[in-house]
Every structure is written in C-alpha cells, then in structure tokens.
C-alpha cells in the first residue's frame, strides 16, 4: 500500500517543484513531514516513497530522517509531548516537569501509550530558554510549565481537548502538525 494517495503524490511533486532543478533533494524534509502527516510517523514505506519521489536511495533519506528528532521513525501516539531538559530548563525545574509528564503518561519516553494517544519525548532544546521550562505539545510551545500545568495539559489531551499554546494556534494533533511543517497548513 502506498503511503501517499495519488492526490498527495501530486502534492509531493508540487513540493519538489519548489526547489531549483538539480536541487530537488532539498525537498526531503517537507516530504518527510508529508508522509509523517499521513501515518503519524515515518515508516519504512514512507522513506521509500520519499526516495522514489526524489530519485534517491532509501538510505539517503533514512540518514536524514534518523537525524531529526521531529521526524519519528518509531510508533508514535496521536500527540507528542516534548519536554526540554536541557540546561536552562533544567535550572528552572524541568526535571520535575518531565517526571510529572512521565507519571501522567505512564509509558517510557519515545514509546507510545497502549491506547495510541500519547508519546513522551525528552527534548534537547526548544530554543525558548527565556520561557524555561518549555514543553511542546505537537510542536506548539507552552512556556513556564509547572508540574501541575504539565498534568493539566495531558489530562486535556486525554479528554480530547488541545490546550491553547503560549503563542499561535495549536495543531489538532501530531499529524496536522506534520502537515503544517510540510508547508501545507493554512496558517503556515
């Protein structure tokens, strides 16, 4: 089964066409987000299809996909909760926030909850140290998160609600976030 429907394959070709001839390889990241928006992660088939669109070997695509933590190669929940535990956030209590997230989600980092809803991810730096500790839900930033706020965010996701992020609009879920990152969202 193809990951990309014929319409999405057309979308992929349009993404590729954004880049100059001979530099199509630059379309790899948006294309990886595109296949991630379909399956909620990047599968082996997804890697192959991106390679096929770009005329590359699968290994070249996997080499890139395996570098970026925003591209997920393993089974991933509908929502990804990323907690920064890097220096600035750690100094402001990120360890406790992470522990709260871990307890509330109830599965190990990088794994998927049994209901397929949540994945916890320990992030290196989210680039917003002034708002430490920072947490992302489906790549939308939540500033100055306390353990309590962390639990609220997760409970909201369990109820099917997505909390307002500190800035901008929250994507519906991880798939929509990937769709936006592919450069296809309306608010992109």
């Amino acid at each position: 089964m193809a990951v990309l429907s014929p319409e999405l394959r057309g979308e992929a070709e349009r993404i590729k066409a954004r880049y100059p001839a001979g530099r199509e390889r630059s379309a790899m990241l948006p294309l990886l987000y595109l296949v991630q928006s379909v399956e909620g992660r990047v599968t082996r088939d997804g890697l192959r299809e991106v390679a096929d669109v770009l005329g590359l070997k699968t290994a070249e695509v996997e080499a890139v996909a395996s570098f970026y933590s925003m591209l997920r190669l393993r089974p991933t929940g509908a929502h990804v909760v990323s907690v920064c535990t890097n220096l600035a956030c750690a100094l402001r209590g990120a360890k406790e926030v992470y522990a709260a997230a871990h307890d509330a989600i109830g599965s190990h980092a990088e794994e998927m909850t049994e209901d397929g809803l949540l994945t916890l991810h320990e992030e290196e730096c989210l680039g917003a140290c002034d708002a430490a500790p920072v947490v992302q839900v489906d790549f939308a930033n939540h500033d100055r998160v306390t353990p309590e706020r962390m639990r609220e965010l997760i409970e909201a996701l369990r109820r099917g609600e997505v909390s307002e992020p500190s800035a901008g609009r929250a994507p519906r879920d991880f798939k929509e976030a990937s769709w936006i990152l592919a450069g296809l969202g309306d608010g992109a």
């Binding site: 590359l56 290994a59 070249e60 996997e62 395996s66």
Partner: peptide, 22 residues
C-alpha cells in the same frame, strides 16, 4: 554513485547503516 549505505542518526548514536529491508 549508488548510495546504499549512509551515516544514520548523526550524533552520539551515529552508525553506518543500510535502509531497513534493503
């Protein structure tokens, strides 16, 4: 010019690898 193998997961876990199943 046939890039069957690549450096995956560049960083601390870097490794030479081939695409899964190939």
């Amino acid at each position: 010019g046939d890039r069957f193998i690549e450096l995956f997961a560049r960083g601390a876990g870097e490794r030479v690898s081939i695409a899964a199943g190939e």
